[in-house]
Structure formats: structure tokens, C-alpha cells
Amino acid sequence: MRLLLVEDDRMIGESLRQALRLEGHAVDWVYDSAAAKATLGSERFDLLLLDLGLPDAPGQPARPDGGLQVLQHLRGRGETTPVIVLTARDALGDRVAGLDAGADDYLVKPFELDELLARIRAVMRRHGGRASTALVHGALKLDPATREVSYQGQPVLLSAREFAVLEALMQRPGAVLSRAQLEDRLYGWGEAVESNAVSVYVHQLRKKLGPEVIQSMRGVGYFLSRA
């Protein structure tokens, strides 16, 4: 998935970005509410991780409601991007204000990475209208919670980025995803992208799953074959 992290604490932000990238997510990171609003207005993300205490702009002190203003701005534009608030503020009033402003979940710092990952999966499951974490397409099954993939009942071992490509395709079965759309799921800002990276991962997936599972539309992109 492509995630936007909005966090002004550089140590927390860097550790979270690295940990989430190791889980196969593309993570972009901004530090203030102005950058968050601008980025959300110009690019698409699968999920937003949002700190509440944020400065309005670089060099300014953090405001207690900086993140809340970003959330209200996002929802005021009718955007339905899932949002998980990450904050050290655990008062009941803060939790209620965050949820009422449109957050899908609220996680108090400090927290364990495993809990954050579970909450990301839960929010995305609800957002997709699914009762189960697992994605199923015919004989193909992918479970983001366990990072397990099986095809025709047999386990399939995938790298993190192979998993990310397959997950993106399974989240939109039948839809044709362009190379650029798949690259967005693999790489954050500043990461080097090989010109044929997506083609390489699709080729590797076809070797492991069979050539018929992922189809290509010449000049357009890739899609899953009919279940």
C-alpha cells in the first residue's frame, strides 16, 4: 500500500517509515500541516497516518490542533481516504474529537509496530467492505495479516515487493493497473525506481503462480485473469 505519514518528530517518523517499508509499504513522509494538505491535494494514498500536534509550516512550533485541521480539511473536501491518528494525547476528549472529525482509528503513542500493522489491516478491511482480512480470487489467496499466499491450495513464497504487486492487483480484481500505479505501491519519494521494475516483479510472479494468472494489456498495464 501507499501510505502518507504526517509526523513532525524526526526520530519517530524515520523509524516508522523504515519499519513500514520493511513490511512492503511505500511510505511518503511530511512534517507539517501545510505540506500534508498540499500533498493530499495533489496525490493519492491508500491510508494516512496522522500525528495531532503539528506545526503549520517548517520552523514553526507545533500546534495541538495541527493534525486535526488536516483531518477536517481532508473530510471537508469529501475525501474518504482512511486515517489513523497517531498521538501521545490519550485524553478521552482528544480521542472523541479525532474520531468525530473523521478519523477511522486512534492509536496512542508509544505503541508496538504489530498493533499498528493490525489496525492498518482492520481499517483497510472495513474500508473495502470485507469481513475477512484475506483476499481471494479464484484459486489464489493472499492474507495481509500473515503475509501468506497460496495458489490452488499450495503455499507460494513471495518477496515483499512481489507481495505488494499481487496485493494491489487482488484489491481491484479485473481492473487494469498501469505501471505507474503499481510503482506507487512499491516506492516512496526519493527511492530509486528501475525503469523495468514492475515488469520484473510481474515476471517473477508469473513464474511462481503460472503465466495465466496475471494478464497484460499492451501499453496499458496488468490485471488478474478471470477467477
Rank of each mutant, 00 (worst) to 15 (best):
L113A: 11
S159H: 04
L22D: 14
A38M: 10
G76H: 00
L16V: 02
F45D: 09
Y222T: 02
E212I: 06
G41V: 06
A103V: 05
A139M: 12
D65S: 06
P144E: 03
E162H: 05
F45W: 15
M1S: 12
G210V: 13
A180Q: 13
V165W: 00
Q215H: 03
Y31G: 05
S42F: 08
T80H: 15
I120E: 02
D51I: 09
L16C: 01
G138Y: 01
R147P: 06
Y201W: 13
A103Q: 02
G76I: 11
L205M: 04
P58F: 03
V165H: 00
S178E: 03
S225K: 15
L158W: 04
F111W: 10
E194M: 14
Y31N: 13
M124K: 10
P211T: 14
L142N: 04
D65F: 10
G59C: 12
V165M: 01
A88D: 03
K141Y: 00
G93S: 14
G153R: 05
V96N: 01
S33M: 01
R218N: 14
L54E: 04
Q171N: 13
S195P: 08
R17K: 15
A180H: 08
R185A: 06
D100P: 00
R44Y: 07
R185Q: 11
L135M: 07
G67R: 03
A62I: 07
A164P: 02
G67Q: 03
D143N: 10
V193P: 08
S132E: 15
G190H: 01
E194T: 09
D105W: 01
A88R: 11
A101F: 04
L50C: 02
R126Y: 07
P173I: 06
D94Y: 12
R95Q: 06
V108F: 03
E167N: 10
L224A: 09
R63Q: 13
R2D: 04
D65T: 12
G66T: 11
D143H: 01
A122P: 00
G78S: 06
E183V: 15
